[in-house]
Nucleic acid binder design. Structure first.
Length: 596
RNA sequence: GGGGCGGUAGCUCAAUUGGUUAGAGUACCGGCCUGUCACGCCGGUGGUUGCGGGUUCGAGUCCCGUCCGCCUCGCCA
């Protein structure tokens, strides 16, 4: 094989006159007849046009004309200015290669798909995933792979500059309670026992801090056996970090700096100092702990206004206790919504409200005189305070979420987002970063009758709040922090508990007995006994960060070999049955489906 | 586990109310073409209509089941 001297996206006018060799794939062949053939040769750097003219020997011309899409070829020739005028759509468009010699390195069968971005956009994703080896040849896919590579490179640079040590943690670990469902791996040497694949390296990185590593970095795979979504995959990657002798301020400062450097070096975007919002404000104003603050449509609580209202739907909701906690009524004012939203549109929002567990979506149009349509007549008694609190003006539409606080928040948060999108209120060109802080340590799980860690059970209380663990756990704030970008959580972390008594207290609050805690997390508790420094950290969702930078809303676009909605890898057809001998060696047997 | 959408040629799609031999573009194959770059012109090959049942004189179309893909609720400390 003739080895290449350049890659297919590199040659420019300055190379004119040079003899070069290119290797690549046949993008397309434009055969003009026996005397003239154009070949577009492609590799991941781009496309270069090669010309075969009558001057070349007949055998080479015949070979050139036999080339087909996705064949692999080598071409030797001389760079020259384009005789037929430049092609502005190609980076190499002002030059072409006058071919002297061509070698076919490998013939391709007719490809099931072509590596064409425009085609791929229309194509069934299933077909692309089955033929990922071709799909990844597309310029867009190569660009994203390159972007992802750049992100991890910048991460290593940035954190190595700041004294972080890159350490690998195990993939085969023990299954622990709490959190997502574990993927599990049977042990051959310990029949009947299983490893779990890590949901994150959380405990290992904490132990690395106890072990004196000071600052830790890992670009690691995390595995959670839960159903995927458009932005979520069972197997995903994190840029995982931990720092010793630190506090919330230092972590936020360090990680904000990383985010700013990332955006600067990948997109050339200057991200200003990242503002903060408390969890309480986020929930009250947006109904969600990762608010998209690119637009308004804030939620406004009107529970107090409707409490004495004769409208039973509202008043009863506010008076009803849901497992000990009162319900609420929250409103969204949609400026100009009376005209902007059709009956069909508001009906769709109502359906959406129901799908999120609300009874419906009461609404009314605002007029100069009062309200009309929907629940208008029930609002008359509280018209004045409602107008004042929501700032209502004629032509507005007002929507109400009624019921359990959590349900109202979740449903109105989603409805707000949909309204923002449908009404064109969201500026896609802006990057609105936000630190969400001051999370509660726990929320109470009524069904299980115990506290559940909002973040995870290794998150420390805010300094000074430790006594609340004894007196009022529900009021205790944690030293956790989430980095939110345009309504998507791209990083989350916390200052960790480094004192054994506190950790034991938290375990007992979430319902673990001392024996259970010792059985499941004894290795952590033991480590905390032997000189654990104050420490904390964070993990960036690598896939999500790359999604944002690449401008895609599909996580599969930023993973070279992603899985489908059902957890299948269509390229290698995993998962699959294993043979009897493997099962026997593991002393496993597969039971029939008990539901059949 | 629930809800929604989809599955017809390698790919993207069409096919009236259930009715002739399931069509088109593209790709592919053959021929022609000396400045193309979505090359062009002429001709041709290509189908288990996801799979299995059922209804019917007749099913891509209707019914039942099932598989696969996407979106989503639950789930995701």
């Amino acid at each position: 094989m003739v080895r290449r001297t350049h890659r297919c996206g590199e040659l420019r006018e300055e190379h004119v006159g040079r003899e070069v060799v290119l290797n690549g794939w046949v993008d397309v062949l434009r055969d003009q007849g026996r005397g003239l053939v154009f070949l577009d040769l492609r590799d991941r750097t781009g496309i270069t046009q090669v010309v075969f003219e009558s001057g070349i020997d007949g055998e080479a011309m015949t070979l050139a004309r036999s080339l087909r899409r996705e064949d692999v070829a080598a071409v030797r020739g001389v760079v020259r200015r384009r005789a037929g005028g430049a092609n502005p759509r190609l980076a190499t468009g002002s030059i072409e290669i006058e071919a002297r010699e061509v070698e076919v390195l490998n013939r391709a069968e007719q490809p099931p798909i072509l590596p064409d971005d425009a085609e791929a956009a229309k194509m069934d994703e299933e077909v692309r995933l089955r033929n990922r080896h071709i799909d990844l040849r597309r310029p867009r896919m190569q660009q994203i792979l390159g972007l992802r590579s750049k992100v991890t490179r910048i991460a290593r640079e940035y954190f190595h500059e700041r004294g972080f040590l890159e350490v690998e943690t195990p993939l085969l670990i023990r299954s622990t309670p709490e959190g997502a469902r574990d993927f599990v791996v049977p042990s051959r040497l310990h029949p009947g026992e299983f490893y779990a694949l890590p949901q994150s390296p959380q405990l290992f990185k904490q132990i690395l801090m106890v072990a004196g590593c000071d600052r830790y970095l890992q670009i690691c795979r995390c595995l959670r056996d839960e159903d995927p979504r458009a932005d979520r995959q069972a197997e995903f990657s994190q840029i995982d970090l931990e720092m010793s002798f630190t506090d919330r301020e230092e972590v936020i400062e360090t990680m904000g700096g990383f985010a700013r450097r990332l955006w600067k070096e990948t997109l050339g975007v200057e991200v200003p100092e990242i503002p903060r919002m408390t969890w309480t404000e986020a929930m009250n104003r947006y109904g969600i702990d990762r608010p998209d603050v690119r637009f308004g449509l804030d939620l406004v609580d009107v529970s107090d206004l409707v409490r004495e209202s004769p409208f039973a739907v509202f008043a009863d909701a506010v008076r009803t206790l849901h497992r000990g906690r009162p319900g609420c009524v929250k409103a969204i004012r949609v400026p100009g919504g009376a005209a902007a939203l059709s009956r069909k549109a508001t009906d769709a929002l109502g359906e959406m409200a129901k799908s999120f567990g609300l009874g419906g979506l009461p609404l009314a149009k605002v007029t100069a005189a009062g309200f009309e349509t929907g629940v208008a007549k029930h609002l008359e008694g509280i018209a004045a305070p409602l107008r004042e609190r929501l700032g209502l003006a004629a032509g507005d539409l007002v929507l109400f979420g009624v019921g359990r606080w959590e349900v109202v928040c979740k449903a109105l948060a989603e409805i707000r987002l949909r309204l923002g999108r449908d009404l064109g209120l969201i500026d896609d060109s802006v990057w609105r970063f936000l630190w969400v802080v001051d999370f509660p340590m726990f929320e109470y799980d009524e069904e299980a009758s115990r506290w559940v860690a909002l973040h995870h059970p290794f998150t420390a209380p805010m300094p000074g709040q430790e006594p609340l663990l004894e007196t009022d756990p529900g009021a205790c704030l944690s030293a956790g922090y989430d980095l939110v970008l345009n309504g998507s959580e791209i990083a989350g972390g916390s200052i960790r508990i480094h004192r054994r008594e506190i950790q034991e207290k938290v375990f007992s609050l979430i319902g673990l007995t001392a024996e259970e805690a010792d059985a499941k997390f004894g290795f952590l508790l033991r480590a905390l006994r032997h000189g654990a420094p104050p420490h904390g950290g964070i993990a960036f969702g690598l896939d999500r960060v790359v999604m944002h930078l690449a401008g895609t809303d599909n996580i599969r676009d930023v993973i070279a070999f992603p899985k489908t909605q059902s957890g299948a890898d269509l390229l290698c057809d995993a998962p699959s049955a294993i043979d009897e001998a493997q099962l026997k060696e593991l002393r496993l047997s597969v039971r029939a489906d008990p539901t059949r």
